[in-house]
């Protein structure tokens, strides 16, 4: 069980690290959002799964009060899946409306829509 938890944590940390790297390497706000919100989501999912498994393990070892830890983390996971894209929409939309154009874009269908 403990090896599974460590594996999940490693995958999570790897994707979190890639998210940070994406902030440095990508050219403009939209592509950076890809890196920042996506790699962070995937990283967070695996870290939360590790926490849930750890809670279950502690319950199986005879510490039932840690079941709450798993339940709470599950709720946080559901909330993260709902709020993360909402925040990303808000940032991207407000960036476009305040005049930030996507860099090196090969196509921009939104340009004709905004008048």
């Amino acid at each position: 069980m403990i090896f599974v938890i460590y594996t999940l944590l490693t995958i999570g940390l790897l994707f979190q690290g890639l998210g940070v790297l994406a902030l440095h390497r990508f050219p403009d706000v939209y592509t950076r959002l890809h890196g920042a919100t996506k790699c962070t989501t995937f990283g967070s999912i695996f870290i939360y799964l590790a926490i849930i498994l750890y809670g279950i393990q502690l319950v199986l070892e005879g510490q039932p009060q840690f079941g709450v830890l798993s339940v709470h983390t599950l709720i946080v996971l559901a909330l993260l899946l709902a709020t993360n894209p909402t925040g990303a929409h808000a940032i991207a939309r407000s960036a476009y409306r305040s005049g930030v154009k996507p860099k090196n874009a090969v196509v921009d269908d939104l340009k004709g829509e905004m008048k």
Partner: peptide, 8 residues
């Protein structure tokens, strides 16, 4: 390697 753009 990126080729970004906004599509409808």
């Amino acid at each position: 390697k990126i080729k970004p753009g906004i599509v409808k």
